[in-house]
């Protein structure tokens, strides 16, 4: 067996946690318990987990506005996240960040980022710090097929190559930049060919296949850790929900989402594979399913009961270290 049981159970548990967290966010949003805009990543779980499962808290990731899955995969506390998304004082960021700005520096999570393309230049900085301080840590940025067209991302890729930074660029290509198709917005038609043009190894992988994605990312991460510089990985995937919760998704084809949930579900694909290979038993994963449901239920109940921030003390704090 090429993977340890512990590894497989951990991967499954994290993917399932993301799935249930996101599905529950939709429900809580629709129930009026989540203010603002929320973008969920259900359907894309395999990439987040494949990218983060081997990383330590000292390795840094930068995320996107669709960042819940990346946070969970990087080890952020699910309860703290739910509180944050509901704007509570005991949330991961004291309710000052929200869904689009969740961060947890202690876990090496440099933040979701509500500016499309905002993250990669910053993740270069984390990589530069690792290189300068000689820590052997790596940095990894999540991007979408949308941010792939931002100038900041081009600049970040070029600088990463010039300075040979330990930065893995992950492109989650779910086919849609908000409501515009990637095959319209990416002029070159191939992100991977374009990424290779920056002078770094670039590969495209089936992001629904956890194992294939894990293997290419493992190679990329090891290359970065060993001083080999940046890599760009494009992972093809499917977004089960809209750009934001409540998006009517009129731009998507008839039955597209229904078919995706049936035939392009990375969790189902994972289960079928590990059972077929004889690596895990269905019962073990069913047990995890039950535990995850309890964990998410607890996170929601606790978050709904959590205190709201107090404007008298919380509005003006945390702007500066000193002023």
């Amino acid at each position: 067996m090429p993977y340890s049981t512990e590894f497989l159970l951990s991967a499954y548990r994290t993917m399932k946690t993301i799935r249930e967290f996101e599905e529950r966010c939709v429900k809580e949003f629709e129930g009026g318990n989540i203010p603002g805009f929320t973008h969920v990543s259900n359907g894309q779980e395999a990439i987040a987990v494949a990218a983060c499962i081997d990383l330590s808290d000292k390795d840094i990731i930068g995320s996107t506005h669709r960042g819940h899955g990346h946070c969970i995969a990087k080890g952020c506390d699910v309860g703290g996240m739910m509180k944050e998304i509901m704007g509570r004082a005991t949330g991961l960021c004291k309710g000052k960040g929200g869904s689009m700005h969740i961060a947890d520096i202690d876990k090496g999570m440099l933040g979701a980022n509500a500016i499309v393309g905002g993250g990669p230049p910053l993740v270069n900085g984390a990589a530069l710090a690792a290189k300068t301080l000689g820590t052997k840590n790596v940095a990894l940025s999540f991007n979408g097929d949308g941010s792939a067209n931002q100038g900041t991302v081009f600049e970040a890729m070029n600088l990463a190559v010039v300075l040979k930074l330990p930065h893995v660029f992950v492109y989650e290509n779910n086919g849609y930049a908000e409501g515009t198709a990637a095959n319209y917005g990416v002029g070159s038609n191939s992100l991977t060919d374009r990424n290779a043009g920056f002078g770094m190894p670039a590969e495209c992988v089936d992001g629904l296949d956890f194992f294939a994605t894990y293997e290419v990312l493992k190679t990329a991460t090891e290359r970065a850790r060993n001083g080999g510089g940046p890599t760009a990985i494009e992972a093809m995937c499917v977004r089960f929900d809209g750009h934001f919760i409540g998006d009517p998704q009129l731009y998507r084809g008839k039955d597209e989402i229904k078919n995706a949930r049936k035939n392009q579900d990375c969790l189902k694909i994972f289960r079928e594979r590990v059972i077929a290979e004889g690596w895990l038993k269905a019962a073990a994963m069913n047990a995890i399913d039950k535990e995850v449901m309890v964990e998410i239920e607890t996170a929601v109940v606790d978050a709904l009961a959590a205190p709201h921030p107090d404007p008298a003390t919380d509005l003006m704090s945390d702007v500066y270290c000193s002023y």
């Binding site: 230049p121 910053l122 900085g125 710090a129 600088l159």
Partner: peptide, 15 residues
């Protein structure tokens, strides 16, 4: 943008 981003990210990570 890459210069400022690299500085900001590095500042959050020990430089």
């Amino acid at each position: 943008a890459a210069i400022i981003g690299a500085a900001a990210g590095a500042a959050n990570n020990g430089l």
